[in-house]
Design a protein around this nucleic acid. Structure first.
Length: 474
DNA sequence: CTACCCTTGTC
DNA sequence: ACAAGGGTA
């Protein structure tokens, strides 16, 4: 064993043992495997909540590796420098990793690949983050898709590679390189006291992901089509946070959904199509990366967005005190749990971009900092879909009415009561948790009065937004 | 080129 | 009914 040079497995968003082609390839080679996670500028640049969640994922995954006789080596610095240094100290001849598709990761990874190859190292990237490589899905004319439905019609006919199973053992080297301590990274620091609250609601690690998927397939998928829309129910799959950290792979989910489909589950097709939405978001981000930070349709640059974050309307939206209960409930769910029901995301986003006429990027940045399931492509696409500036976006005149939405999707008011304590004699823990999670400087308490009217009225805001739409139409 | 189609809505 | 231009086969 000691004669065989080890393989460095550079982990990023693939904190799992199964459905992990890079890990499987490394283990099957017979060489010792050294799993490495590098704290680089991309990790440092993450928002508070996703950074905390990744740290928790690393903690759990480190233990998972130890149970397999392996370890997770932690290092800080420029990835090429770190990997080149480890190549020197370990004698590794190969470095494997799972591909990512955002512009910063692509730039970083191609630089690393080039730098390692220049040193004679076999640097290899693998699939595993997505169902398909973004360049493998094309229209008949050979270009990328810009509309979801034809993308979906194409994707659902494709074969998805079967997920690999977890390796029985991960060959260990005779000597391990030095590792930094995860605690020293203090990845939850920016969360302040919010981390302790979100922790109560969070599920972490590959085993938790598998349990969640199994429970969903057992209880949730049959009624998924309607159930996913009901705000007070656990009708969604809950897979997003595990996909973001890579604690589950998309192929695992796809094949589970396909099995349910073949067994006649009525919600399976809708479920699979949601996974394809994630795929579509990365397809768009890969082919038109400007979707991540600019209006995808340039004519939307003319729209008179408000982007001064100090404005009272923006503060009210962020602090969940707009006076529109369903909007504030969604924003509080995010503060407390680090996630928000998909429908609430649309409703809160619509209120910000339409009624308050605030730039979608303000909301995108807020979500980037507060969602533990933050996904760069899905978040950007979602905001531009609601705002109207994206590909295949909702027409701008389609404005969500939070009252109508509440009648349809929270008819008993259970979701609003779960998250808004004010005015309740005996508010639930969930609603009280909000006051524990928020920054102290917001100085809010459950006994404060809730705003007696919306900061911008529903019909007033709707009309103002539709009037402003003329700036884009002409 | 044409014909058909376009996640999640509202009034 | 509104309002809508553009994507895809």
């Amino acid at each position: 064993m000691s004669d065989t040079p080890p393989i460095l497995l550079w982990l990023r968003r693939d904190l799992r043992l199964s459905d992990a082609p890079a890990l499987s390839a490394a283990c099957e080679s017979g060489a010792p495997v050294i799993p490495v996670y590098i704290r680089d500028s991309l990790l440092d640049g993450l928002g508070a909540a996703p950074k905390w969640r990744l740290g928790r994922g690393l903690e759990v995954f480190g233990k998972t590796l130890e149970a397999k006789g392996s370890r997770l080596i932690l290092r800080s610095g420029d990835p090429l420098d770190v990997l080149a240094g480890l190549v020197e100290t370990t004698g590794a001849k190969q470095v494997f990793w799972t591909r990512l598709y955002d512009p910063e990761s692509i730039a970083r990874d191609s630089g690393v690949k080039e730098g390692l190859k220049a040193k004679g190292i076999d640097a290899k990237s693998f699939s595993g983050t997505l169902l398909f490589e973004p360049w493998e899905v094309e229209t008949k004319d050979g270009g990328p898709y810009k509309v979801y439905s034809p993308f979906w019609r194409t994707v659902k006919k494709r074969d998805v590679a079967a997920p690999s199973s977890a390796p029985k053992q991960i060959p260990a080297p005779d000597t391990w390189p030095e590792s930094e301590a995860l605690d020293d990274w203090d990845l939850g620091r920016a969360m302040n006291r919010g981390a302790a609250v979100v922790e109560r609601y969070a599920e972490i690690g590959e085993d938790a992901a598998g349990d969640r998927l199994a429970a969903f397939l057992e209880e949730g998928i049959d009624d998924y089509k309607a159930g996913r829309d009901r705000l007070a129910e656990a009708g969604t799959s809950g897979m997003s946070v595990f996909l973001t950290t890579g604690e589950i792979g998309p192929r695992t989910i796809w094949h589970a959904g396909m099995r349910a489909l073949h067994e006649g589950s009525t919600g399976a097709e809708t479920f699979l199509s949601e996974l394809a939405w994630r795929e579509f978001a990365w397809h768009l981000a890969y082919h038109t990366p400007r979707i991540l930070d600019r209006n995808w349709r340039e004519k939307w640059d003319a729209f008179p967005w408000e982007d001064d974050e100090r404005k009272a309307e923006v503060k009210a939206w962020k602090q969940a005190r707009t006076g529109v209960p369903l909007v504030d409930a969604g924003m509080r769910e995010m503060q407390v749990t680090g996630t928000m029901h998909n429908r609430a995301r649309m409703i809160t986003a619509s209120y910000l971009t339409k009624h308050l006429m605030v730039h979608w990027r303000v909301g995108q940045h807020w979500f980037d900092a507060h969602l533990i399931d933050r996904d760069a492509a899905s978040n950007a696409m979602g905001w531009q879909w609601v705002a109207g500036s994206g590909p295949d976006a909702s027409p701008f005149f389609r404005v969500f009415n939070p009252e109508t939405q509440q009648e349809k999707f929270d008819p008993e008011g259970a979701y609003v009561r779960r998250w808004i304590a004010e005015g309740q004699d005996d508010p639930p823990e969930t609603a009280l948790d909000y006051f524990e999670a928020i920054p102290r400087r917001w100085a809010r308490a459950p006994e404060d009065a809730y705003p007696d009217k919306p900061i911008v009225g529903l019909s007033e805001g709707r009309e103002r937004a539709l009037d402003a739409y003329g700036a884009v139409k002409d």
